[in-house]
Amino acid sequence: MKKVTVYLVALFTILSLQSFGQVVDNKIFVNPNTGSDSNKGTKESPLKSLSEAAKRVSAAEGEGAIGVFLAAGVYGMSETADFNPKKWKFTKANRLTIRAEILPDDANWTPAEMPIMISTMPFSVEKNDKGELTGGQNFGIMIQNSHATIQGLRILGEPVHENPSKGVLVRNYPIMWEGKNLEDFRVSQCLFLGNKYALPNHLGILANGKEQEIDHCVFYGVKDALVLWNSPATNSSMHHNLVIDSYGGIVWTWSATPDFKFYNNVISNGNVLWMLNKDEKDSYTIENSVIVGYNSFVNKGGGPQGFGEKASDDKLKLGKDVILKKEGKLEVIEDQTSKYFLHIKAGTLGSNLGAGLFMK
């Protein structure tokens, strides 16, 4: 009888261990308060970190949709959450989705329910050709596959001194989409929040690929909102976003093709509205948007440590229903108890375009 009991216990232990490291029912649940990275990753037994969820997705073999669900709480990211599934097949219909358990359009959602992502990881060291230190960088969420969505997260930068000395820049990239021949990437209903001095959020989204869609996000106090770079970003769009107090360049279309769609965006108090590649060869159109307060309309060139030089204003064409004002700022709700915290005040300029976290 004792031998049978020992055998059953051993068998149960083996089966339990085999379930660890796997994606159960194509879903992974993460909870920074009650989870453990040795758990199964189910709703009842969640993981603790997004980086562990990334490791399990990257190790998975098969096909179909995978959902990673983040509970409310603070996620201190001590390492990059690197999603790099080489043996799993995603499609446009069956995609990788990294999302909050409760989304902004859910009836019981409040701003306090958003999972908070904050980087606490070290930076890689960068040097120039002379071996001189020029800075460092790190990445929060790294997506290296096609057909992926990030939705409903509150994404902060990193508490770091961004310019420790002249010519040296230390920067955090919260979301990076990087790889060869990538397509179909969406970031939706996310709040990117930063402070130039206390919590610099250098660049919300750095993306390389085609069919990029950035929609219903809020970028508040972020240096740069979106950089499309490297391979041609065909069939891409940025719409229904709210960008407030950007101290860098709001949108960088270095790799965007002229079919890039920019509409129903609301921008207040920005530095440079638009950054073109240095060759300044392509033109873009702004539709149905409100832009109030900016230092420069369109520049070309630039990089992590600068914003290039002024480009020709006619490279940005104003389509229908665009309001453009060089001076001024829009009215923003600063009441943290309001569902519409950090959104444009109802009935004021820009509030009618649907820009912000809500789709309904």
Rank of each mutant, 00 (worst) to 15 (best):
K3E: 13
K3I: 10
V6C: 08
V9Q: 08
L11A: 05
Q18G: 13
G21V: 10
Q22D: 07
V23A: 00
S36D: 13
E44L: 12
S45D: 14
K48F: 04
L50S: 05
E52K: 15
R56W: 01
A72K: 15
S78H: 15
P85K: 10
W88K: 00
W88F: 07
F90N: 02
L96V: 10
T97D: 02
A100R: 04
F123S: 06
F123W: 10
S124G: 15
K130I: 02
G135L: 15
I143C: 02
S146D: 01
G152I: 02
R154E: 02
P159D: 14
E162M: 14
N163Y: 13
N172Y: 13
W177I: 14
G179R: 04
K180Q: 10
Q189A: 15
Y197N: 00
A198F: 07
H202T: 11
N208Q: 11
G209F: 03
C217T: 15
Y220K: 11
V227G: 12
N230M: 06
T234L: 09
A256V: 03
T257F: 12
P258H: 14
K261M: 15
Y263V: 03
N264C: 04
N264W: 00
I267Q: 00
N271V: 02
L273K: 07
L276I: 10
D279S: 13
G302P: 01
F307L: 08
G308I: 00
G308F: 06
D313S: 14
K315F: 00
L318M: 09
G319K: 03
K320V: 09
D321E: 01
D321S: 14
V322S: 09
I323G: 03
L324Y: 05
K326E: 11
G328Y: 12
D335E: 12
Y340Q: 07
L342W: 09
H343D: 02
L353R: 03
K360R: 10
